[in-house]
């Protein structure tokens, strides 16, 4: 049941592999929507943190618990990994499977470095009795930063499964789409981290 129409044949622009199949390109749109929703999760956590920031009570102040050296290190690791995953996508677009895998592995290593640093910091804090039980500020801090860290850890696990799929199946519309969505996720986490870096750590330094 359809009616005759003029099928406007528009010259098809060169579309990268991950967009070449309609169903897969729809999944990319869907992933954007997921990111928007996830962004609102972080926005809610940020608003919680913003409100709880001054509720230090008997607990330590931001300046007492933040280690700016390791925070800067974490930031650099994550920014670099954002660049390397960008390079992986670049290589993917050029159909350089080997280069792509290499960049992806580098990304994972950097991400693992980030998570390791963060876990190390958390463990040090807890050893000094700095837990989320102590004050509203610490609750907000640990949950906001911890949620981001959990996201990064999930991203690493996800990318490991992607590595298996890529090595088994090579570059197909499906695998490239998966890698592309992973890169979106990773850059998104980078943005969130930049805001954490600014609003949690640097704000803590200022006030």
């Amino acid at each position: 049941m359809s009616l005759p129409v003029d099928p406007k044949v528009i010259p098809k622009p060169p579309v990268p592999l991950e967009f070449s199949v309609k169903a897969e390109s729809i999944k990319i749109t869907g992933f954007w929507m997921f990111l928007v929703s996830d962004m609102l999760i972080f926005a809610s956590l940020f608003s919680v943190f913003a409100v709880f920031r001054s509720r230090i009570m008997a607990g330590p102040t931001p300046n007492q618990i933040f280690h700016y050296g390791s925070t800067l290190l974490e930031t650099l690791l994550l920014l670099t990994s954002s660049f390397t995953v960008g390079m992986a996508i670049f290589a993917m677009r050029k159909s350089h499977a080997q280069a792509m895998m290499t960049w992806l592995v580098v990304t994972l290593v950097l991400g693992a470095g980030f998570v390791a640093t963060e876990i190390h910091e958390f463990i040090t804090d807890v050893q000094h009795g700095i837990t989320w039980h102590v004050s509203g500020f610490l609750s907000g801090f640990f949950v906001l930063v911890g949620t981001h860290g959990a996201h990064v850890s999930f991203g690493i696990a996800w990318a490991v499964t992607l590595l298996f799929q890529l090595s088994r199946r090579g570059l197909t519309p499906v695998t490239t789409r998966k890698l592309y969505t992973f890169s979106l996720y990773w850059h998104f986490l980078d943005i969130v981290w930049v805001f954490i870096f600014t609003f949690v750590y640097l704000f803590g330094k200022i006030t």
């Binding site: 749109t29 940020f46 660049f83 998104f188």
Partner: peptide, 28 residues
Amino acid sequence: QVGIFMHLRESRGPAWQVIPLFLGFFIA
């Protein structure tokens, strides 16, 4: 990050994701 790395406007057909994304920024 959004503009350069995330290829914001890559899409088949209109890049609809831009609208929810900026709405999301605004609401956040």
